[in-house]
Design a protein around this nucleic acid. Structure first.
Length: 252
DNA sequence: AGCCTTTGACCAGCG
DNA sequence: TCGCTGGTCAAAGGC
């Protein structure tokens, strides 16, 4: 995406909802608690985090079952906004949505690492005096496989009016962002999101729709207990975490 | 006008 | 010391 004025552009609201709603906790089967060693690192084995991740290129690696489950839902979600998916950029290098965690991020670099199979994007928090950085690593198929937070935010999340996420659930997201630590989502919620669709996409979307209707209250609940861990860099854990993530969601 | 992404270059750490 | 790799900078261009 060619940013220009917005951190993450303006994905169709419905799809935004699909993607961001899973950050709310407490839906679908209770996920296993995130390994403490994953603090500051989010692992991904499933398209997530952004509308862009759901364009055809990124759906490709999904299993047929997942495709069947996902695409119709997206289509339904986009009812009234037909062509939304077609309007997506086919560029899949930078596909995550850092702003989805409630903070504003500016991409300051991108590097292809690991033999060119893993493009890695580097983000800074745009808040002045905030030195938090975030590395987003993509798999070869464009899916986010890992997010690494570096440092701690020295400020509150931007007010919802300033969060440059767009569309229907953006306000929900903003509220959610105001109540849940960024990195907590990066860990448990993202992981939950990674797992849940595999459990049941129907359920996932159903919950999503519920979230859309129920609003902030469902989004508000979260634990702050992990916050103190969240922004620490635990690069030592990356390998193990990555391995475990791959076990759960082996790359396509 | 402001803020963003893109992208090549530069720098530092490591084997 | 050299080469590789990963992280950052900064100019250019877009919205």
């Amino acid at each position: 995406m060619d940013g220009g004025g917005g951190l993450w552009g303006a994905p169709p609201p419905a799809v935004e909802s699909l993607l961001d709603a899973p950050f709310s906790d407490g839906w679908l089967t209770p996920p296993p608690p995130p390994p403490p060693t994953l603090s500051g690192t989010a692992l991904f084995g499933y398209p997530q985090g952004s509308f862009e991740n759901f364009h055809e290129q990124d759906l490709a690696p999904l299993t047929a079952q997942e495709m069947l489950a996902l695409q119709p839902k997206i289509s339904i979600a986009n009812t009234g906004s037909t062509g939304a998916l077609q309007g997506l950029s086919t560029s899949s290098v930078t596909l995550d949505r850092p702003a989805a965690d409630g903070y504003n991020w500016r991409k300051y670099g991108q590097k292809v690492v690991k033999g060119g199979e893993c493009p890695k994007s580097y983000y800074k928090c745009t808040h002045m005096n905030c030195l938090v950085r975030k590395n987003v690593e993509h798999s070869a198929d464009g899916r986010i496989v890992q997010i690494i937070y570096r440092g701690q935010h020295t400020h509150e999340r931007p007010s919802k009016k300033r969060i440059k996420v767009c569309g229907g659930l953006s306000e929900h997201l903003a509220d959610f962002s105001g109540s849940v630590d960024t990195s907590i989502r990066s860990q448990s919620d993202y992981q939950d999101y990674c797992r849940n669709p595999i459990v049941s996409n129907d359920t996932m979307v159903g919950r999503l729709m519920e979230n859309m209707e129920d609003g902030d209250e469902q989004l508000a609940g979260s634990s702050d207990s992990q916050q103190e861990h969240d922004d620490e860099v635990r690069t030592d854990d990356r390998a193990a975490a990555d391995a475990s993530a791959n076990e759960r969601n082996p790359p396509a």
